[in-house]
Amino acid sequence: MTKAGLLQIEGAGKTYRGGTQALSGIDLEIGRGEFVSLVGPSGCGKSTLLRLMAGLLSPSAGTLSWAGGARPEAGFVFQDATLMPWADVFSNVHLPLKLKGISAEDARARIMAALSRVGLGEAAHAMPRALSGGMRMRVSITRALVMEPTVLFMDEPFAALDELTREKLDDDLLTLWNEQGWTVIFVTHSVYEAVYLSERVLIMNETGRLEADMPIEGGFPRGQAFRDSQLFFEQVKKVSAALRGRSAP
């Protein structure tokens, strides 16, 4: 791995209060600026691992250590857009800044720039319910990015969208990642999406363990040409096989 370490996880496990053991024996290192995807069958603990890394859950075993001590500035994107329905697009994006004590006035230029970048400059004062699913997801991503986070956690962010919208948002995300150099941890159940986006794909199995850690070849920036390439298909096949190899009984 060429990128310097950002997060080191050793022997992490999580057992929920009800007794469900969602994760066990997770050893993992995430490099600064990496794009890592996490795939695995439903219920295998992907969301749990993501929330553990984000500090929204505490591990019941093992340790997480961030380079520099504490978790750096982070953004989180959930499967549904999770916007505040009572606030317009601008205020929703303003939220992380507001919680840090930055007023709407001081943040205006920054928020408008971030919204324009994802094509939502015109929609700044629309209410979430007036937006399409794809637009709502863009707002959610913009909200996660407006703080200029060091690390971005995404939990199946585009799963509810149609194929075309999803590909468009995947491309937007990659472009932004290329420009900004955040670390992205991306949960998905689509092997195609994982291979297309990532430098590395982590595969989890039903027992809540990491099954494989596969580097993905193919330079950036990626686009339609990569989606159509032989290299892409080869790697999708490889990851699928690794995933099936364990999830089929």
Partner: peptide, 27 residues
Amino acid sequence: VDHNLRDLFRLYGASRWQTLTGLQLPA
């Protein structure tokens, strides 16, 4: 209150007061 929104407030280090006025009361 939506669980994910609550987590989001936690992620950004919101105080009790901020969570109450910005999230719980509007919800």
